[in-house]
Each structure stands twice: as C-alpha cells, then as structure tokens.
Design a protein around this nucleic acid. Structure first.
Length: 900
RNA sequence: GGGCGCGUAGCUCAGCGGGAGAGCACUGCCUUCACACGGCAGGGGUCACUGGUUCAAUCCCAGUCGCGCCCA
C-alpha cells in the first residue's frame, strides 16, 4: 500500500542506482528494440570540472534528459555523452589557492611537473562534483563513456588538430595586442572579458608642440599612466582647430620623446579635446591607428602591469595605479594639467582574475577564425544546422561574420601544452610528438648547413618546447567527435556523429556553438549537430540574474532536498517557454510538488481499488462510455505531450500533462469511475479497473521524461510482481486515432457541463452541500431525460440529485440551463431566492453581451462575404445557442420572480 | 550607437488573426470512504499607448512610452 504522500528522498537515490547499475543509460543497450537503426545523440555541454550545479545547469540538463528519455522510450539507440572540461584558469586557481592555504610551496617554487601532479590529484579527489549532482537531478547520461578534456584520447585529438591546422596555415604565431590579465599573468579570450561601468575621470594634459613655444595640444585620457608609452597624437583630418598642426610633433612631457601629430578619422572632434594621445602598445584602437601611421609600439608594462624599463627611471616598478597618481601629480607640477572632468566609462575586467585587463603586446598563437568560420556560417545559411528559436541565428551570424583571430595560447600550466618546439635560432617545429619535432628540426638544420645547431640537437640540447597551453575551449570545440574516439576510426564516431541536437544557453553560443561548428566542419566535414536548441537563462523571481554578490542564488540541490528532483524538473520544464527567461520562485516549485503528490494519490486510489494492468487489455474494446471517453482523452494527451517535446516547446508538454492528470483524470475520470468500481455490475467493475490502470500506466509513460523518479516508482508498484522491465526502457505509446469516440466525448462533455452548472447554482444559492433532491426536467424532453438517466449514478454522486423526471418547475426552485435542457431543483425554502435571481440576471446579462457581439458580426456584410464559411457558420451556431440559452434563462428568471 | 526581447488578472507567466487562460495569491463553503501538498464554488483584465492593415487585431505592421539583455 502506497503511503499518503510521496517522499522523494526515499526513492531517488535507489531508483537512480537501479537505472545506472542496470545499464539503462548505456548507448547501444536499446538496439534490439530498435528496428529502424535510428540514433539520437546529445553531447553534454561539458561543465567545468571545478564547477557545481547551478540553476542554469539544472534547466539545461533537465531539457536534455527529457529528449533523451523520450527518444530512448521510442526505441532509438540513444547516446547522451557526458563529461567535464579541464577549465585551465579556474582549476589552476583552485589548486594554487589550496597550496597557499596549506602553507605549501607555490606553483613556481614547486615547478611545473610537481604542480601538474597536484592538479591531477585534486581532480581525482575533488574534481567533477557536478557529475554527482547531475545524477541527483536524474540525468540519464551514459556515465560509462564519461570523458574529460585532458584525457589521453581527447589530448591526442587536440594535438592532431593543432598540428594539422598549423600545417594548413590556419594556426600561426603572431605579435598582437591581446587581453592580458595582470593578476593571472596570461592572455585571456575577449569572451572572458566583462565590461564594467566605472566612475572615473577624464584628465586633460597639455602636450607642448615642438618648435612653437607656448603652443600646446591638449589631449584627454582616461588612463594617464599610459602616456609613458605614447608615440603619437591623433587629430581628425577635418578638425579646423588642429589642421595646422598635422605633421608637426609634440614633446611628450615627463619622457621627452618626440612624437608625431597625425591625422586620423579615429579622433572624434566631439570627444574630449578632439586630440587623442596614441599608445599603440596598450590600446586596441590606438594599435590600429599606430599601424596606419607607422607609430612606434612602446610596451611600458611588465606582465603584472608594473612600469617597466621602457619608461623613465622614476616610474619603474610602480604598479599601474600608483603610476597614474604620480603622473597626474607630476604633470600638474609642470603646469600641464588643464583640467580633470568626472567621467563614467566602461573598464574591461577579467572574469576570473577580477582586475582590469590590459591590452598587451605579446607573442601568442592564433587560429584563423575568419577562415574557419566561413563554412560554419554557410551551414546555418543553408539550413544544415538550425537554431531553435530561430532568431538566435542572427546573433550567431553577427558574431561569426565579425570574428577576430582567436588567441588560443594561455600562459598557464594546466592544459594541453602546445606541441611546438623552438630550435637554437628560434625556428619553430610543430609536430604531434617531441620525436617528430626533433627529426624535423634535425633535417631542417642539416638542410640549412647549420652545423652548430645539428651538433646541439644530436647532443639532445637546443630544442625547447613552447611552455604555453591551449585555451580550454580549443579542446571543448572538438567535444562532439573527440568524445566518440576521434582521431581513431571508432564505431561510435561512425554511428553517433553528427549528433542530433545541442542544448545550451544563449550566453555561450559563441563559446560553444561557434567553435564546435568550426572544428566539426573542418575535421569531420559535417556539422556537429543539426539543431541548436537555445534555452533561456534562469533568473530569480524578480528577474535579476542570480549572482553570489547579490545573494539571490537559489541552489538547485536545496530545492531537490526540499521538494524532490521531479518537482524541480517539472517546474523548470513548465517555465521553459521559448524566448523568455525563467523566473524561478519557490512557490512555483511547491505548486508542482503538490502536483507530484496529486499524481501519487491518484495511483494510490487505483491501488486501493485494485486497478491493475491487464495483459492484452485493448483500449478499443471498452464498453462503458466513461472508459471510452478517458481512452480518447489519453490519446489526445499523448499527442500534446509528444508534440511539445518534439517541437522543443517543453512548457507545452508539461502543461498538457499537468492538465490531463489533474483536471481530466483526477477531477473527472476517477470520480466517474467510483460508482463503477464500487457498484454491483461486475463486468463494468472489471473493465473500469483495467481501464483506470491502463490510463495510469499511460500517464506514467507520458510523464516519465519530465519526472522520471516518481513515475518509475509508481510504475514499479503498478506492475507489481509481473514487472518485466523498468519504465525507463518501456515503450512510448502509439495509439490508433480510432480510439477517440465522438459520441462518448459528447455525452461526457454534456455530463460534465450539467454537473458543473448544478454545482455552481447550488453553491451560489447557498444550498447546503449535503442536501439531495429529485431533479425535474423542465425543458428538453425525452431525449434529454434518457441521457440524464443513463448517467444518473454520476449526476447523483457529483451533483447530489436522487433522480430525474419530466415536470413543471416548482415555485422557488433552482434552475440550470445546459444546452437544450432546463433542469429544476425543487429547493423552495432552502435556497436564497435573491441570490438565485441575481445569478440568473448575471447569466442573462452575459448571454446578452455575447448575443450583441455576434449579432454585430453577422450583420456585417464584409464578414459574411469574406470570412471563411466555417467561421460564419460557427458564429451562427453560437448565436442560436446563446439566444436559446438566454430565452431559457429569462423564463427561469420569470418563475423565480413569481415566487418572490 | 547596433542587435534581440519584453510590457496580458495582485504576483509569475502561457496564448499570438475569429468565443480572454494557467499556477500562486485572494474570498466563501466542505475535515465526503485517493489526496487539506486536498475538494467544490467564486471575485479579479479598456491584453502599455496611438495610429494603420483586415470582414475581424491581445495577436500582424508603424510609431510613442516604459523595462530588460547582448554587442560596441
């Protein structure tokens, strides 16, 4: 016997273990059921190995799991490929912090090799907590295939890709400005840079013009310290104020350098003074101007953003903010500070290091993203990969068409070390192994006749590997095929690539989608996925982004503890409407927890009434109208849920299931079934038990992808001893359209309407709920009478009437109108006549309103001429109905008034 | 500045050319033999505003106002 409420904590771990240990998550296990040899594959967007489950993951993985479970039940060979990425910066930071806390030697003191050992140790002990958390969510990933971007196989894929792209000239080394994080001392991606609005100042400095005593050019800057690296001043070519100075020079104060005044449209006459100091080595825009005008690139910072030896001695060693202060003071002392304005502007911050990033001129490795992006753009243009919702294609195009060279090197230790070796003269050799690089180098220097280098190499010296590692996203870009075993020609690559759909939040379209598209197309010659489903962000209930600093983070694991994984999953699913963010309120989760309890109790009711599945039960063969009706409703519900899942309208799937379970099955069918289940008609009882069990079983199937735990638990109870296989691998139902019986529908809808009307009238007229009476059919005649008599059990139980016969409405009776029928309930003395009169008047007013509206429509010639026939007919029918109802209500009102 | 999106019941949101919906909250009644995490009934909306297209607009188009987010 089921308990009164569902307790997720006693079910979830146990069920999950059964699934996983039973091998039901494994790809290929479904193959014998699968006649069409169709596969369905999703690669998980690999979470960060240092990460833990947040709401975004919960939504993302719930939706993936719904598709995976649905397709698995449909009998497809399903692969949900899980794993994590090595998160270069984040992981290195975690371990460094740990070392500091333990008072152990820092990274540099312990050396690269020892440090990497520590990182691996950390990974084995504490990495990947998120995979355990995904299990708690119910994610049915094939854990036997779990991968990590630093795995041997995936690392091999990285090496191969790097070397091949290098040899195809799609990877190259270059000295360019990159986003430099001075806290972490590494280049970072422009996607890892967050712009923050900062209230600061605009400083106006006067730069003396060479050879013209007393003439100054005023420049405005937000970063005074960079003036130490100035190598020019730009003015707009059409700016009348400065035209005469173009071609002349300024003498850079404090430094004494002679710097040219150049004309460039980049200088905006409206901004600041209209003249802009140029620091090409420390600003992206200045860099461009510098290239155009051949300005010197003077790097004034160390890797930690302290002033270096390229600046006057006084400032060397100062940190950038100290230097700013000193320079402003010194400029002022020279009388060259014109003014300081308040100024709010955007300052780039590194999202990991948390300090402002520096545009910094260094040697880095770059991928030719522009070339790689071309086919990736075409794939979407030509519809081979499509975005859902479709409008994300715009974002994708926007970014891909303006893509910049991708800086792929990082000055870190944790990651895939770049397979490039430098010879004694700095010549670079890129190969998958040191041996190959060595051979290549030897051949090169022999060929060149460089005896000294050949000698060094032969002694095992002179070849040094590039110390840098690759951007984590370089390896994640290969994820859809590297996880399947590529570069080996594995059966998995052949079978599961390309994957079916990628599920992701829009915030990582650039990180994920774009890069996987580029790499997938280049190396596999085929898109990595046909569909990209972009879901929303999860926000707090007020719509603010969840963040630790705001303190509005809701931990999905807390919600799972409190309400169960299914409640959380269903909440997220029900709110996953396309194109709108999910605003999560716990009251919502609580509401869906109540829904889980409702389902539980429906099953409990079935259990108590011995509703057990009957082998060979044929839903087409039921005889009772209520059973015919619920079978048809089940078919409709399956259609709605299926359509929702298949069209990525998960909220529709959830609400269809919700409505069917609660508002159809529980509210009506189970109530209708009660007299049959407890009555003396043995045949009807047997049929109803079987039907109820069948419908419940269908419900468990339809809901399983969304709420796997409770459905599996109930399925187990329902099946009892005869259970052959668990719900997770049961067959998704396929129904015959013929199961929808129009006559049964019409009858049951009429019964529902009549019961609702009677209940409503009784309630509004303050009839005591317990009062029962005979009903009198005032209008409607024999046809209605026999229909009502056929369902007397239901009417009796749910509308509380004893019987029905044709007659006159007694004085002061309650009267309800349903279609052609007027039913009177003789309750003189019990009912509140004024309330009843008011009720009828209200109903008449409502009908009048409708009649006026429809009348207006039907008297419009344009409508009659141009609207589709069925719409016109529908309105005519409705008008007739409303008029008939209005007349009946008016009669009823007259009778009540007479009784007053 | 460019792009995307949103303004529908007190709150959170579906619906998106032909009868205004859900959940929560609220009110009244009901401890009825599945469920009070429940049942029954009910109140509550010029679908932001202004124009346009259409026989018909919450829905399509344009503009206005307000609010988000992304990119510069």
């Amino acid at each position: 016997m089921l308990e009164k409420t569902y307790t997720p904590e006693t079910v979830e771990d146990r069920r999950y273990r059964e699934w996983e240990e039973g091998g039901f998550f494994k790809c290929g296990q479904n193959a014998e059921r699968n006649s069409s040899d169709e596969t369905f594959t999703i690669v998980i967007p690999p979470p960060n190995v240092t990460g833990s489950l947040h709401m975004g993951h919960a939504l993302n993985n719930t939706l993936q799991d719904i598709m995976i479970r649905y397709q698995r039940m449909r009998g497809l060979d399903v692969l949900w490929q899980p794993g994590t990425d090595h998160a270069g910066i984040a992981t290195q930071m975690v371990v460094e912090r740990q070392l500091a806390q333990n008072g152990e030697p820092n990274r540099r003191d312990m050396g690269r090799e020892a440090f990497l050992e520590r990182v691996w140790k950390w990974k084995e002990e504490s990495g990947g907590t998120i995979t355990g958390q995904l299990r708690r969510l119910g994610a049915s990933c094939d854990w036997s295939r779990e991968r990590f971007t630093m795995d041997e196989g995936l690392s091999r894929a990285v090496l191969k890709v790097f070397v091949q792209l290098y040899k195809e000239n799609l990877i190259y080394r270059d000295k360019r400005l990159v986003n430099w994080d001075p806290a972490l001392e590494t280049a970072i991606s422009d996607l890892e840079v967050q712009q923050q609005e900062i209230q600061s100042n605009l400083w106006y400095f006067r730069y003396p013009v060479e050879g013209e005593d007393g003439t100054y050019l005023t420049v405005a800057t937000t970063r005074p310290e960079t003036m130490l690296g100035d190598s020019g001043v730009a003015v707009h070519p059409d700016d009348e104020r400065y035209k005469h100075l173009i071609g002349k020079h300024c003498i850079l104060p404090l430094v004494g350098r002679r710097i040219p005044i150049v004309a460039d449209a980049y200088a905006d006459p409206e901004q600041g003074s209209g003249a802009v100091k140029m620091t090409p080595a420390h600003d992206f825009n200045d860099f461009e101007v510098g290239v155009r005008h051949n300005l010197e690139m003077i790097n004034i910072f160390t890797t930690t953003a302290h002033i270096n030896e390229n600046a006057p001695e006084k400032y060397r060693g100062m940190d950038r903010f100290e230097a700013r202060k000193a320079i402003v003071e010194d400029i002022e002392a020279l009388g060259l500070l014109e003014k300081i304005d308040d100024h709010t502007h955007m300052v780039p911050y590194g999202d990991r290091g948390g300090v402002p990033i520096e545009p910094y001129l260094t040697d880095q490795w770059f991928a030719d993203a522009k070339t790689l992006a071309k086919p990736a753009i075409e794939s979407v243009e030509q519809g081979r990969t499509k975005f859902v919702p479709e409008n994300w294609t715009k974002t994708y195009y926007e970014w891909m068409r303006n893509i910049q060279p991708w800086c792929i090197s990082r000055q870190l230790w944790w990651g895939h070390q770049i397979p490039a070796w430098y010879g004694p003269d700095g010549e670079v050799f890129v190969e998958e192994t040191e041996e190959l690089a060595y051979a290549e180098a030897l051949a090169h220097y022999k060929d060149k006749g460089d005896v000294q280098s050949v000698e060094m190499l032969e002694e095992g010296r002179g070849l040094e590997r590039d110390p840098d590692v690759l951007d984590t996203w370089f390896s994640s870009a290969l994820w859809p095929f590297s996880t399947l075993g590529w570069p080996d020609e594995t059966p998995e690559v052949a079978r599961y690539y390309p994957t079916s759909v990628l599920v992701t939040g829009f915030d990582i379209i650039f990180f994920w989608v774009a890069r996987m598209m580029m790499m997938g197309l280049h190396f596999m010659k085929e898109e990595p996925f046909h569909t990209v489903y972009v879901h929303a962000l999860v926000r707090d209930e007020k719509g603010a982004k969840m963040s630790k600093s705001k303190g509005n983070v809701i931990d999905p694991l807390d919600l799972i503890d409190q309400y169960g994984a299914d409640s959380l999953r269903f909440t997220l699913t029900a709110q996953a409407a396309q194109g709108r963010d999910v605003k999560l309120a716990t009251s919502r989760v609580e509401g869906y927890r109540n829904f889980m309890t409702k389902l539980w109790n429906a099953a409990r009711f079935c259990e108590m009434n011995e509703c057990l599945p009957v082998d060979g039960f044929d839903p087409a063969a039921v005889g009772q109208t209520v059973n015919k009706w619920i079978v048809g409703e089940t078919v409709k519900a399956e259609r709605a849920v299926r359509a929702g899942i298949e069209s990525y309208r998960f909220n529709d799937a959830a609400s269809s299931a919700y409505q069917f379970v609660w508002n159809v099955f529980c509210d009506w069918y189970l109530e209708f079934a009660k007299p049959l289940l407890t009555g003396d008609d043995a045949a009807a009882q047997v049929e109803t038990r079987a039907t109820a069990a069948w419908v419940l079983e269908q419900i468990l199937k339809l809901m399983h992808p969304m709420t796997p735990f409770i459905t599996e638990e109930l399925y187990d109870h329902l099946k009892g001893e005869n259970r052959s296989k668990p719900l997770i691998v049961s067959d998704w139902p396929v129904y015959d359209d013929g199961l929808i019986d129009a006559a049964a529908d019409a009858d049951m809808n009429w019964v529902i309407k009549l019961i609702s009307e009677i209940r409503s009238a009784r309630s509004e007229a303050n009839v005591p709920p317990a009062a029962k009476m005979d009903a009198i059919l005032v209008e409607g005649g024999d046809a209605v009478l026999s229909r009502a008599k056929a369902y007397m059990d239901l009417l009796g139980r749910m509308a509380r009437i004893d019987g029905i016969s044709i007659g006159e409405a007694p004085k002061g009776a309650l009267q309800v109108v349903v279609d052609e029928a007027v039913v009177a309930l003789p309750l003189a003395g019990v009912i509140d006549l004024d309330a009843e009169k008011a009720r009828l008047e209200k109903a008449i007013a409502k009908a009048d309103g409708e009649i006026t509206k429809i009348d207006k429509k039907l008297s419009n010639q344009g409508f009659l001429a141009k609207a589709p026939d069925e719409v016109v007919q529908e309105n005519r029918d409705r008008l007739a109905e409303e008029k008939a109802a209005r007349d009946k209500l008016a009669n009823a009102l007259e009778r009540i008034s007479a009784a007053l």
